[in-house]
Simulated assay, not measured.
Amino acid sequence: MKTSQKTVIRLEKLQKHYGAHIVLKEIDLTVTSGEVLAIIGPSGSGKSTLLRCINYIEPPDAGIVTVGDVTLQAEKKASAKQLHDLRHSIGMVFQSFNLFPHMSVLRNVSLAQERVLGRSKKEADERSMDLLEKVGLADKAQQYPMRCSGGQQQRIAIARALALDPKVMLFDEPTSALDPELGLEVLSVMRRLADSGMTMIVVTHEMGFAENVSDTVMVMADGNVIESGPSREVMRNPQTERAQRFLKAVNER
């Protein structure tokens, strides 16, 4: 781990199902401060659903979710305050950019700061410009998202998530909708975030990122965690037959 061993996220026996279909089967997970966890595995293994359960976009059906000082038990209905406190500490970046097309890039990054954090427009804009500078897009502040490339739009989405000062960032295959060259722009920003000590959980199909940037790799299949450990060990010498089969298939593409 990169920094302290303080636990930022803990999942205990997390389950999610849709009707008779069980998507997550008693997932246990601990992520510490400054850790970068990459989650890999075949399509349909529950990776994206796991991220959505962490911030309660998809409420789990059983188990316990702890993020920072907030603990939610699936069997008990979460209060509005609990959900606010939970989500306030989490930034999430999706496959799709989800930017407001009728607002400038600057306004896309500033709006939530004013509404969620109560910052003035001036304070929010200053913070937004600082973040846009960090993702290499300060010159796009007054443009509209449609005038930006896919890679630029995803970097704007990252800046928007960071603007709320989250304790942890969740990335759901952030480069999957981009061509390889534009994907590299986004991965570069994520690498700098990792180097800065941001706690991150990244669902990804980018095996190079998983091996070289993350601290820990978790392999999922059929709603289970089938292997987890230090990134290079898992990527280069997986111990389970299912993980071996998945990584062999990926490497032969």
Rank of each mutant, 00 (worst) to 15 (best):
K47R: 02
A141I: 13
V36C: 12
D165A: 10
T240I: 13
A141F: 12
H84L: 13
K76N: 10
E227C: 06
F94W: 08
D69K: 10
M92L: 10
I226K: 07
A157H: 09
Q143Y: 13
K122H: 04
G41I: 05
M200D: 06
K134H: 08
E126G: 13
D28C: 02
L247C: 00
V23S: 01
M207W: 04
R115L: 14
T175S: 14
N108I: 10
T7I: 14
V250F: 00
T3K: 12
L11C: 04
E181M: 14
K6Q: 15
S33Q: 15
A138Q: 15
A194T: 13
G197L: 13
P101F: 03
Q5R: 14
I158P: 15
M218T: 00
Q239R: 11
L37A: 08
I40M: 00
N224R: 12
M103Q: 06
S196R: 11
Q143F: 15
N98G: 02
M200Y: 09
N108P: 11
D125Q: 15
H205D: 01
F94M: 05
D172S: 01
Y18Q: 01
I57Y: 03
T216Q: 10
H17F: 02
R10Q: 15
L83C: 05
G34A: 09
R160A: 06
L72I: 09
R107K: 15
I27S: 09
E133L: 11
L24T: 02
N224D: 00
E227I: 05
L83N: 05
S231I: 04
A159V: 04
S33I: 08
S188N: 14
D69L: 07
L137D: 00
M146L: 13
S214K: 00
T3P: 14
D125H: 15
I22G: 04
S89A: 15
A20G: 02
S4G: 15
M169F: 09
N237D: 00
S188Y: 02
R192K: 14
S89V: 13
N251I: 01
F97M: 05
K16M: 01
E173I: 01
R242C: 05
R147S: 10
R107A: 13
V8R: 12
R119A: 07
T240D: 11
I57K: 04
T199K: 07
V65M: 11
G208E: 03
V65A: 12
P166L: 06
D215M: 06
R127Y: 14
E133V: 10
L170N: 10
L247K: 04
G118E: 04
N224V: 01
K25C: 00
R147C: 12
D125L: 11
R236W: 12
I226G: 03
L164M: 11
S4K: 13
A78P: 06
K248A: 14
D85C: 07
G46H: 03
N55D: 12
A163I: 09
C53Q: 00
E241T: 08
T7R: 14
V116F: 08
V219F: 13
E211K: 08
V213P: 05
A80H: 06
N237I: 05
R10P: 07
G118V: 10
E75G: 02
